[in-house]
Design a protein around this nucleic acid. Sequence first.
DNA 1: TTGCAGGGGTCAA
DNA 2: TTGACCCCTGCA
Length: 296
Amino acid sequence: MVIYVGNGYEYKFDSSTNTVTLTGVEHFDAGHTFLCGQCFRFDQEDDGSFTGVAHGKVINVKTNGTTVQIRNCTEEDFKNLWERFLGLDTDYGAIKESLSGEEHIDKAMEFGWGIRLLNQEPFECLISFVISTQNQIPRIKKIIRKMCELFGDKITFDGKDYYTFPNCHKLASLTEEDLAPINAGYRTAYILDAAKKVASGEIDLDIICALPTDKAKAELMKIKGVGPKVADCTMLFSLQKGDAFPVDVWVQRIVRQLYLGENASIKEISAFAGERFGMHSGIAQQYLFFYARENG
DNA sequence: TTGCAGGGGTCAA
DNA sequence: TTGACCCCTGCA
């Protein structure tokens, strides 16, 4: 069975192995997408593929040129979850065209040609980036892994155990003592504050998603441990705010070096992004971030 | 082996 | 605007 999906590629579904194979997919590479720092729950396998958990399910994603293979994936889940999760419903050719025309961003886009913005689950994304503050990726992943092991649900794939991300009610029911084993340090209180505000409805991520970016950001920043950077990451990676431009140390470095000079403030960097990259600031940030980090 | 600096920021004063 | 912050890692 071959079905035209409508975003420039075709897909085949093999029900005997629960594998979806897409052909003719441009602008997508699993390594670029999962290693550019937007998510912490997908790990690389020996064969170069990536396995991770989202939406309470495990999938394995492998790219080879313009072919994408997704294992442990039903046809229904592909259409309802993974096409959107992986950003395969978005026309990256058009986005890149609108961003190009200047040497630095062109070089960054060429380098990270296969990055797509994932559409992650908002609560998981929020908590993950609260954990990310003043922290390094291996430790962020470790804390999240431990939290899922202790408070998520176990699912098995390929003979290995994986764990779902605990929901807001589960986390809101915990104490700092319960969370002590994950070693999140001072972030533990922030995790609990976020979980309680979301569980109680004081912070409604669906409503925030429908707000314009500046208002959504102000709402998110009512949570302890959520400043401008964490709010921008949450909006960009899970609330479809493509104009959000998270400014972290790497982005500061590269924007100063390439565009604005040593003395540019974070405010000036944000303003520059809005003017230069507009509604696609977020994906531009990912290209620049990946380019900066991979090249020191 | 031990000690120290610094890390995908944020809070509080 | 500035220091402190949990804990971990890399590096003398």
